[in-house]
Write a protein that binds this DNA or RNA. Structure first.
Length: 560
RNA sequence: GGUUCGGUAGCUCAGCUGGAUAGAGCAACGGCCUUCUAAGCCGUGGGUCGCAGGUUCGAAUCCUGCCCGAAUCACCA
């Protein structure tokens, strides 16, 4: 659509000298389809020319000249409404979608973007609320990869800290090898919970835990072996869930990576910014910035998250020389990330400006009926089971593919559910919505895709490359063409705002139009040439849906 | 209390760099399977855009104040 906007703007700029072409381009709107494809409001001109806007629109329309791009250019009150000529539109459509040029990832920029997402704490099963960072980070990564960046997908595990001392103590006291083998991470959670109960009454436990973690930090072989074992078990279980979700990482590391360099990091910080001891803790005061201080070391000398994160930020810059550095982390940590950037900036690192916190709202209303967490895996399994049930009901999917299709659809519903609205909104946990596969949902879009593919499979015509698109005359066909041509704008908007819901909405609106297409237009009954033209269009609908969903991290299926 | 984010239909949300009658989905109700997949389609009802001022040709959108909710504000991450 930008192509036609540009033509309109150029034409307008020939008549209007007080505005540049780009200023005019900014003013052009995409109105209600009934009014036109493009609209130019004359209010801003009215101020400059001191003339009523409806007069200006009327006069302008008479002066404007076009080739054959527009079929109608009319003054409607203060607006100039423009309809695009169908043949020009279809010609442009064919050009852009030949070899799917428009859907291809953008040229490589040779610029790195490390992104930190998912990042669970080890020794605890992944709870449902981890879905947000995992799915948002994965999709943002896909999006930036699409527009040309090289992504470094980092799962920055919470794998260091006194909680491992606690876990070690708990395992020594109540742990069982047999249960660890059988239940894996859930056994670790059990004993961790028990530890917390017991430690309320028995204060010696905490001291013991600190001692054990100190041993780990100092490199004690036995302590380290136990830590490594907890970590390996955790990673194995995490990977199982990432496989279900279809989420990938390029780097699995964790806070432990920075354990050896913490002292030198603190020395480095001390040498570059003013630090002080306050109430026994080592802090960086940020009064000038109107922020609370950043704590580097606790009273007992132990380091904190901030120290590790500063080390990690520097490390990521040194390793990747990043164009941007992203963190998909909840909005609770907004202030913390501002502080982190300020500290890095104070240390003289200009690249701190390239750090961006992709924040998102928290998951609320999670069922606590059992007084414990809702595990992500359970929610996924629930969604997959429901989707399998529906697949069996319909009986369209071959036996051998049922489980795979059920997974893609069930998981698609969960992922889409997370990405369908603005990141910053809190996410309401609600089984009913989560498992509702109709309307504005992943399965709806996937379903739309299968119907299109089904038609393509049933037709004898398999090659549409030389289709004569001028045969496409139905309104709904033209609407679809216009929608498909919006793809680059949607990608751009999503990337500019780090918002995935633009893509989710886009996939939905294509599907919605497709539903209308099915109602008014028949493909297989059409004459061969017309059928070919329609198949060309449908194949592009399918490809656009697939490309859009795949950026969101959702797979398409051929049947459901 | 300070800071930040939010308050639009019963619920979940779009729309917010001011513009033409405020839009979706879910839920409710009523229709549609001899027609390329009914996980679908069509229709109906449902709104003082938190409240009050201001800015202007025009405000859900910008400004101010207030009300309500959430997050956060030094030893968790």
């Amino acid at each position: 659509m930008n192509y036609f906007k540009d033509i309109l703007a150029v034409s307008l700029s020939k008549e209007i000298e007080t505005f540049t072409k780009n200023e005019l381009l900014e003013l052009i709107e995409v109105p209600d389809p009934k009014m036109g494809d493009l609209a130019f409001p004359c209010f801003k001109l009215a101020k400059v020319f001191r003339k009523a806007p409806h007069m200006i629109s009327k006069e302008l329309v008479e002066k404007l000249n076009f080739n054959d791009e527009f079929s109608s250019v009319k003054a409607v009150g203060p607006y100039i409404n423009v309809f695009i000529n169908n043949s020009a539109l279809l010609k442009y459509f064919k050009q852009e979608f030949t070899d799917n040029k428009i859907l291809k990832p953008l040229p490589r920029l040779n610029k790195n973007i490390p992104i930190d997402y998912s990042s669970p704490n080890i020794a605890k099963p992944i709870a449902f609320h981890h879905i947000r960072s995992t799915v948002i980070g994965n999709a943002i990564s896909n999006l930036f990869e699409f527009i040309g960046y090289d992504l470094k997908r980092i799962n920055y595990l919470g794998d260091w800290g006194t909680q491992f001392g606690k876990l070690s103590v708990a395992f020594k006291k109540w742990g069982s090898e047999k249960e660890l083998d059988e239940k894996g991470i859930k056994h670790l959670l059990e004993i961790y919970v028990k530890y917390h109960e017991e430690s309320k009454n028995d204060k010696t436990l905490d001291a013991e835990a600190r001692k054990l973690f100190k041993l780990t930090e100092d490199g004690d072989e036995e302590a380290l072996a136990l830590w490594k074992r907890f970590r390996d078990i955790s990673i194995k279980e995490f990977n199982r869930i990432y496989d279900i979700l279809g989420v990938k990482f390029t780097h699995i590391e964790g806070e432990s990576r920075y354990a050896p360099v913490l002292n030198e990091t603190i020395e480095l910080i001390k040498s570059k910014v003013h630090t002080e001891i306050s109430q026994g803790a080592l802090i960086i005061p940020l009064e000038e910035e109107n922020m609370p201080p950043v704590l580097l070391k606790k009273m007992d000398g132990a380091t904190l998250y901030a120290t590790r994160d500063i080390a990690a930020a520097i490390d990521r810059y040194e390793r990747f020389n990043f164009a941007r550095s992203l963190y998909a982390v909840g909005s609770q940590q907004k202030l913390y990330f501002q502080q982190l950037k300020v500290v890095l900036k104070k240390m003289g690192y200009d690249w701190a400006d390239k750090i961006k916190h992709i924040d998102f709202g928290m998951v609320k209303g999670m069922s606590t009926r059992k007084g414990n967490l809702v595990f992500l895996e359970d929610v996924l399994n629930e969604a997959i089971a429901l989707s399998k049930e529906k697949i069996l009901e319909k009986g369209r999917v071959p036996e051998s593919e049922i489980d795979e299709v059920a997974r893609k659809v069930g998981v698609g519903a969960i992922i889409f559910g997370d990405l369908k609205s603005s990141r910053i909104n809190d996410f309401e946990f609600n089984w009913e919505d989560l498992l509702n596969f109709s309307g504005y949902s992943g399965p709806y879009v996937q379903y739309s895709y299968t119907r299109v593919k089904s038609i393509m499979r049933k037709s004898d015509i398999k090659d549409y490359t030389n289709a004569d698109l001028s045969l496409l005359k139905e309104d709904i066909e033209i609407e679809l063409v216009k929608e498909l041509l919006k793809f680059p704008e949607i990608i751009q908007k999503a990337a500019e705002n780090d918002e995935l819901y633009f893509l989710a909405k886009y996939s939905y609106s294509i599907s919605k139009l497709m539903a209308n297409f099915h109602r008014f237009v028949h493909v297989l009954k059409a004459e061969p040439e017309l059928q070919k033209a329609r198949l060309f269009l449908l194949s592009k609908v399918a490809d656009t849906i697939q490309t859009t969903l795949s950026i969101l991290g959702i797979e398409t299926v051929e049947n459901m």
